[in-house]
Write a protein that binds this DNA or RNA. Structure first.
Lengths: 293, 293
DNA sequence: GCAAAATCACGCGTTTTCGCATGCATAGCA
DNA sequence: TGCTATGCATGCGAAAACGCGTGATTTTGC
């Protein structure tokens, strides 16, 4: 009746993913192995944990209970790994950060360069995604985020304040400036599907022309002259083929933070990365706001 | 960097036992396996977890932290196993009880007989020990205990009230009855090293002659006529070569309980065992008290 | 309605893990 | 000082676990 902890972990993954392949992928083993471990767990528990269906493994109620306990075990594992990460004083090994894709080229790239030169023994892994990765689960050690605050459970440091403004292709910008009362076409983000508030009274006629779900595509559309765009200053300024138009005067926007789990925050590598980040933030402040230094 | 849960468990056991053999015994594997798993854990963690000394493995501070987290995982495992035990509706498989040695022959033996005949598919395991086993860790499913209450975390059912009285060998008993004012020698238990309170005024002269740390040995000494003994009625009555003497009139003593963890309490097997236990308790009540039914 | 993709079961050869036996070092003890 | 207990390291053969390939079935997408 000696149950094997890794079998419990396997059951947990199979309950989560519902297919052998999915669980196997998460565990970095062959899916046959998942099937075998689950069979073994079922036999030592004397309980059927999954219904084998054509489209996957359907967990029974008992399997869900097993998984909930395995989840607590997993939490302890992550607690441990974060502790070890936080206690690490080595400036070597791997270090993982995550940032929104669009922050990489304009802001983060020089930071990465500096950091790598200062700490050549650290293998830096960059996860460029708009998804909010779970730092509690160590999906990344530090995250660069655009938000109003670091969140409840995380520690954070505000790197930069930033502003947004309206941008357009040079030709469209010219046209708008010379015909301020004509109808102005906007390209907007799906999550904010209206013309931004705060447009200048000098440009009274605004309407939404396109709604996109992807910022890169929106920038492309703006470059092609399809409309006016509200984006953070740094983004409009560093995108070729766009220039600022006075339709929407610069206005404050969410700040740029570096956030991390308190456990990991103290690690030598995290400290080192923040140092480079802070130094570079001071240097590049003027890209993010319209105010003089 | 995929750490193996069973390696964490192995580290926990090695921190607890400090020797490969001890940990191996607890894990029911060869000690070589413990050594190998610990080496593997050290290598994936990049940390030395133990100092190899001549008399065993000395855990480092980091190992203790690892062990504390593994302990939480272990707690979840026990929580799960108790849940599964409690949800079990089969009247087959193994079932483990514990009871003080001295309760076995006089009280429990017929219960075991009845239970086995009623449920021949259940393999009953009996741990006869005075140690208080940890039911939270499933060292036993149910425990028969002599105490005033079941304890904080456990569920309990009072099976029998009982009384104690004084016993002696027939020859000594005769002598005491015919010479009540002579000095009476007592054999007492280490934990209560004085002459029991409540002796009858008819026998005014009492002293402690021997102190023992073992009840079986005390019974033997009493059988040999070395002195008077205070024991529960059932014990004196069922021990050959002893008879009750009126030095200490029957007086209430701690009750006999069956206790169990709330999670396990509801299992079919536990219910079945309690049934037999209750039935037999009613029958045998007269052995435990001096009062008429 | 049919092709492509996804899923699982099973069998085979390989890799890894494990247990056992041996040898060595140290501590406790007479 | 020698003897014995206990505990660890290492090497070898057995056992277990694993990955891969094949085949069957079902779902998904066009």
């Amino acid at each position: 009746m000696a149950l094997i902890w890794d079998d419990l972990r396997t059951v947990l993954m199979l309950v989560r993913h519902q297919t052998l392949a999915g669980a196997a992928n998460a565990l970095e083993v062959n899916y046959t192995t998942v099937a075998r471990r689950v069979r073994r767990a079922e036999s030592t528990l004397g309980q059927i944990l999954f219904e084998r269906l054509a489209d996957g493994y359907q967990p029974t109620e008992i399997a869900k209970v097993v998984a909930s306990h395995a989840e607590k075990m997993e939490t302890s594992e992550f607690d441990l790994r974060r502790y070890l990460q936080g206690a690490d004083t080595e400036l070597s090994g791997t270090f993982t950060i995550t940032a929104p894709q669009l922050l990489i080229s304009s802001f983060l790239a020089p930071v990465l360069d500096d950091f790598d030169q200062a700490h050549p023994n650290i293998e830096l892994r960059v996860l460029a995604t708009n998804d909010i990765l779970d730092l509690t689960r160590l999906e990344a050690d530090l995250a660069i985020r655009i938000s109003r605050n670091p969140g409840d459970t995380l520690k954070g440091l505000r790197l930069l304040e930033q502003e947004t403004a309206s941008f357009a292709s040079p030709r469209l910008a010219d046209h708008i400036r010379s015909h301020p009362t004509e109808m102005i076409d906007w390209i907007v983000y799906d999550a904010f599907p209206n013309v931004p508030k705060g447009t200048s009274p000098m440009f009274p006629n605004n309407r939404v022309r396109f709604r996109f779900d992807d910022m890169v595509a929106m920038l492309g559309a703006a470059q092609a002259g399809l409309g006016v765009l509200r984006v953070p200053l740094f983004l409009g300024r560093t995108t070729s083929g766009l220039e600022i138009v006075p339709v929407l005067p610069p206005q404050p926007y969410s700040d740029i933070w570096v956030v991390g789990h308190p456990d990991v925050w103290t690690s030598k590598k995290a400290q080192a990365f923040r140092e480079v980040l802070i130094a570079h933030s001071k240097w590049s402040r003027s890209i993010f706001t319209s105010q003089a230094d």
